[in-house]
């Protein structure tokens, strides 16, 4: 979402990525890194937790004694060094028309939903997860089940195959080997790049595209028109 929103903004303000790659990249890196810092502060250790390891140590600015920073590790921040590069390169390659950029910006409805994710729930607001336990949790589970049912088996299988290192995929053993090929932060960056290299593997792209199409409810005709 951030990648796309910043890209659409960059395209509307400075022009196509093909002609303004550096400006695009600067904006993607800036907003992406700031969003990760904000996101980790709000949710790391709550919605997910990174465990510090020899290859993914606590980020240097996480050693300030603030309890909310203690599970902030280097890897998720480094993601925002490399992902913007990959995304900007994709934008350069696709070279979409800037004429449509403004209307491609996420609409206010989506922005409002995103803002609400990180805002305290108002009294009485339906928040099935926060009021978890018992029947409400069952309702929450059912809501996710309905929304993601189309991809559950295939995404589970993809994660298993990544873990096992199935043919055509960069598996976890190779990722770990990259992590341990050098001391952090260089080794951390190597491991991250091994992870992201899957996005260029044909096998991975085909399977992940299947997940995307199912989530977006694309049909064959939609697929062809987006190529």
């Amino acid at each position: 979402m951030i990648l796309y929103a910043v890209g659409a903004l960059a395209q509307a303000v400075v022009g196509p990525a093909a002609e303004h790659r550096d400006a695009w990249l600067f904006l993607e890196e800036l907003v992406g890194n700031l969003s990760e810092l904000k996101g980790d502060e709000a949710a790391n250790g709550l919605q997910w937790t990174y465990c510090t390891t020899s290859y993914n140590p606590v980020e240097p600015w996480g050693r300030d004694g603030n309890p909310s920073h203690r599970n902030n590790t280097l890897l998720p921040q480094l993601v925002w060094v490399d992902v913007p590069v990959n995304f900007t390169d994709a934008a350069v390659r696709l070279n979409c028309s800037s004429a449509a950029a403004a209307r491609e910006l996420p609409p206010p409805e989506l922005a409002a939903l995103l803002r609400r994710r990180l805002r305290p729930a108002a009294a009485g607001q339906a928040d099935l997860t926060a009021r978890a336990g018992g029947s409400e949790c069952t309702v929450s589970k059912a809501a996710l089940s309905a929304a993601f049912s189309a991809v559950l088996n295939s995404s589970n299988a993809l994660c298993n195959d990544l873990s096992a290192g199935a043919p055509g995929l960069v598996g976890s053993a190779a990722v770990l080997q990259a992590f341990r090929s050098a001391e952090p932060p260089r080794g951390t960056l190597h491991g991250l790049r091994a992870m992201l290299s899957n996005s260029k593997k044909e096998v991975f792209r085909a399977r992940a595209t299947g997940l995307w199409d199912a989530l977006m409810e694309f049909k064959d005709g939609d697929l062809a028109s987006s190529e």
């Binding site: 949710a43 709550l46 939903l113 990180l118 729930a121 928040d127």
Partner: peptide, 12 residues
């Protein structure tokens, strides 16, 4: 609860 505002129904 702040970080989970909206919860799973928010994700949907």
């Amino acid at each position: 609860t702040t970080s989970l505002a909206g919860g799973n129904n928010g994700t949907v």
